[in-house]
Nucleic acid binder design. Structure first.
Lengths: 242, 242
DNA sequence: CGCCTCTTTGATAAAAGTCAATCAGGGTGG
DNA sequence: CCACCCTGATTGACTTTTATCAAAGAGGCG
């Protein structure tokens, strides 16, 4: 389910990682990124369906995804789950646990995945030698706040078709950033999970996919999506309207 | 609309502020709070309807509310607004602007209000003398992430009546923390604003208030609310179910 | 091969939105 | 000081959207 991987001298470090311009070091100067190299002393590999952390567990680190994808979800008093995000390589998770140093959500792997462990204490030590590190970390937290606010906007003001279109466009853009195709990709999550995330039922999601396909916006077979008319999807999602 | 207030020697400081155990210094040691006193060199008073900051403006500070209340809202490409929060005294706003040092939202006063200005640069300088300050700030950002995630949960998984109940309960609890009545208070926002925040129309909000009143859960006249059966509201909102 | 999970699709019901009219206060100007 | 107006709130009738219930189909894995 979950396996620790210790970093060896020949392991990839932040300064040699392909994701360095997306992940924690995004925007940092070359020489500062090199100083980051000691920060990650540990990686964790999680198999599909395994959890990286669970609600209530002590939280003293955040995690940067190296490969794979995870979902984060809140659990309410009655056990109902709400997915709050689908995370891709280069994205950071675990920052919601820093209020009480205890996780308030679960993180579950959607496929076999690996994350870099960033211990907060180590980061605080290192930040004495890297002046920009604290600011960098605030930026990442701010990004998470923004991400969540945009989700609120989507849930609060868009209709189901707009939400789903926005979801596809967002995924497309993030995959493009990673160097993958922005028009052809595999959905790592089920209809049920998409629906939960977007505040819809799985049936509604399925119906919308079918309708989008009929309208020529996408081609979809199971979890393989092909965005045929990205501009139309963007327009439908309410973004970049001209 | 907006007026700067410079701090004089006799002004209240963090160490003498009534809100110190709620606001920025929450949980900090007494001697560290005293070191915070130089941090706030400026306050801003905003009249009802005035803006503290607007989308696109440079962001180099965060703000702690001293008195009054504000709403924060996102604006999409087509000008549609989504309220992402109603903030009360002791609560911090502006942390969503730290990604690009530019505000991505608007903050509007719901009543005449005053905020303490916390310049990020000053905080970074001060944090060299207050080891816990960076951690403190991360806690506050984490809190904002959590707040937003819970709103996502509300929007994504609760029905309209549950959302409104949860909204009332949440307000009640925050007002209680401030020492106000948890059962009798004034709504500083319109039905329209509540509806926008909760992803509902103003008519739905109004109808639900009327229904809650008919069912004996609340008494409401205009913006004056009286929570008559807080346990029932908590239960309705899905929290603390037993 | 068969079971199990995920997905699709249809019929129907419920929730919430829209449109519209009326009502209540609060503030302003005559 | 009062009438009027303007904004915000309430309520009703009706429509639209989305959920619910149900059944059947499609892959994938043991």
């Amino acid at each position: 389910m979950q396996r620790k991987i210790t970093i060896t001298p020949e392991s990839t470090r932040c300064s040699t990682c392909m994701l360095s311009d997306i992940c924690l070091p995004v925007g940092m100067a070359r020489d500062e990124v090199e100083k980051l190299d000691e920060l990650v002393q540990e990686r964790i590999r999680i198999t599909k369906g395994g959890t990286l952390f669970n609600l209530g567990e002590p939280a003293n680190a955040v995690y940067g995804i190296r490969f794979g994808s995870l979902k984060t979800q809140l659990e309410d008093a009655s056990g109902h789950m709400q997915i709050t995000g689908f995370l891709l390589p280069g994205e950071i998770l675990g920052m919601d646990g820093m209020l009480e140093n205890r996780h308030v959500s679960n993180a579950v792997a959607l496929e076999d995945s690996e994350v870099c462990v960033i211990h907060i204490q180590d980061m605080d030590v290192l930040s004495r030698h890297i002046p920009s590190l604290q600011q960098q970390f605030r930026r990442l937290m701010s990004k998470e706040i923004n991400r969540s606010h945009r989700l609120v906007m989507s849930l609060g003001s868009l209709r189901s078709e707009q939400r789903l279109a926005a979801f596809l466009v967002n995924l497309s853009q993030r995959l493009a950033t990673l160097g993958y195709s922005s028009t052809e990709f595999l959905l790592r999550m089920s209809r049920d999970e998409i629906g939960n995330y977007l505040g819809l039922t799985l049936e509604t999601v399925s119906r919308l996919f079918s309708r989008f396909a009929k309208e020529g916006l996408i081609r979809i077979h199971q979890r393989e999506v092909h965005l045929l008319d990205l501009p139309a999807l963007i327009k439908l999602s309410g973004g970049e309207c001209d």
